[in-house]
Design a protein around this nucleic acid. Structure first.
Lengths: 248, 248
DNA sequence: ACTCTAATGGCACTCCGTGCCTTTAGCAAG
DNA sequence: CTTGCTAAAGGCACGGAGTGCCATTAGAGT
């Protein structure tokens, strides 16, 4: 399966920049294949390196550690998210913006289904790799939390820190749920449709936290009449619509 | 500071069960002190072991790895949570039960403030230790999610999986927020008071997800009258109270 | 005093990750 | 074509983590 990567006759030195990207990818492919084939712990870095046709020392010039080989570089995605947050309209619902942020992560996984699915098979099996994955998810969640805390605090919420943390966790969990479902489907399902649904759910739940509008001159009265058999979430949906003046 | 643990004259073999617990604790104390004193990476297992007066090989009979030395044994707490979930009243709000579950984790940290605070200083500083901490939080969250998914599914929620994951993440985030705040205070604050507040917040937000009660013979009508300056969360609070028949 | 058991300590080994140095490929100027 | 120059690769050696193996020793029971 990794025949070509195993015996690819590569230049031994003086590699060009494009060649570097190629070799990096070859190492990743070799690592994933070997891990799936004969297990993570039993595979040595020596084997990965020689499968890609390079020396062991070179492997560590491309990846900090053995497990690094199969994980994507999240730095760029994190920067994209930061940019999105920095340029987001102040008036937009912060939770919606946060959902758009993790949407970038989802797209990142979706952009290479083959590697993502194979990696998922490994992170499910090998506990140390799962921990690694969880740690990277946490990094995203921290960025979300920081953004939401700031926005909530700017809106005058006295519990901004707490609510920001919770909302960030909820958004991240929604993303993880959609991603895992997509991964379990082998990368075949329509993840974006599920993401939209999940993000809507989170946004609704966190709409509770919108502060009362105090500056409104047009004070109105909202009257809701419902039967107890109506689901509570439906009640809230209608009431918050009335709140926003979406008519009713 | 770790004078007594460093040169404690211990029996070299045939240790009794009580002695085992003692030595385990001594190793933990020695590890924490050394890590804080001279850094995590620069401290070798040899140093930890000899600080506790034992050989290096013995260290690995008490802890699987170097970082294991400073982390508590979560297995028992996890089992306590599982027990709580298994014996919980089916009619209780599942989210409340989940909050009670993570409450056990909080109590666990609170039971040894000194070690918890010192460990926090390390997990903030050393990234590999932080990842380790995050991984253990994730284990708790998975247990919460499984419980909530089952309960939601039993209640006939078609989105039980998604909502269970999100609610679990929210509960875990609330716990983490309270715990970190308590840790930052040096273990001085009243964590339980903050926990109650945080758990109430999460429970309210997730109360949206309570399914409509279909089997009620006493179908009633709920009427809510509010001004638009009332905060939406207050509206929901009152409406859900009316829903539950808490009078109003 | 003897035996049996369980825990310890030492030794050797594999592998990860890193610093240091040499070698080589590719490029540019003469 | 030759001669430097630079960036990347390879090799080597080292420290430290974690593990299997085996001899040793303390302590309990007889």
């Amino acid at each position: 399966m990794s025949e070509e990567s195993r015996r690819a006759p590569r230049p031994r030195a003086g590699r060009t920049t494009a060649g570097r990207r190629q070799l990096r990818h070859s190492l990743t492919v070799a690592a994933i294949d070997l891990f799936l084939e004969q297990g993570y712990e039993t595979t040595t870095v020596d084997e990965i390196a020689s499968a890609a046709g390079v020396g062991r020392r070179t492997f560590f010039r491309y990846f900090r550690s053995k497990d690094d080989a199969i994980f994507p570089n999240h730095e760029e995605v994190l920067q994209d998210i930061e940019r999105l947050f920095a340029t987001a309209d102040e008036k937009r619902n912060p939770v919606e913006v946060a959902c758009a942020g993790v949407g970038l992560v989802l797209d990142f996984y979706l952009s290479d289904p083959d590697v993502s699915v194979k990696r998922y098979a490994l992170t499910r099996t090998v506990s140390s790799l799962r921990d690694r994955e969880v740690a990277s998810v946490d990094r995203y969640q921290r960025v979300l939390a920081r953004f939401l805390r700031e926005r909530f605090a700017a809106a005058g919420d006295p519990l901004a820190d707490l609510r920001g943390s919770i909302a960030a966790a909820a958004v991240a969990a929604a993303h993880n749920h959609v991603l895992r479902r997509w991964l379990r489907s082998g990368g075949k399902e329509d993840a974006h449709a599920h993401a939209k649904e999940a993000f809507q759910l989170v946004t609704e739940a966190s709409s509770l936290y919108e502060p009362a509008r105090t500056e409104s001159d047009d004070e109105q009265t909202v009257i809701a009449v419902m039967r107890t058999t109506t689901s509570l979430s439906e009640v809230v949906r209608q009431i918050s619509a009335a709140y926003r003046g979406d008519d009713a």
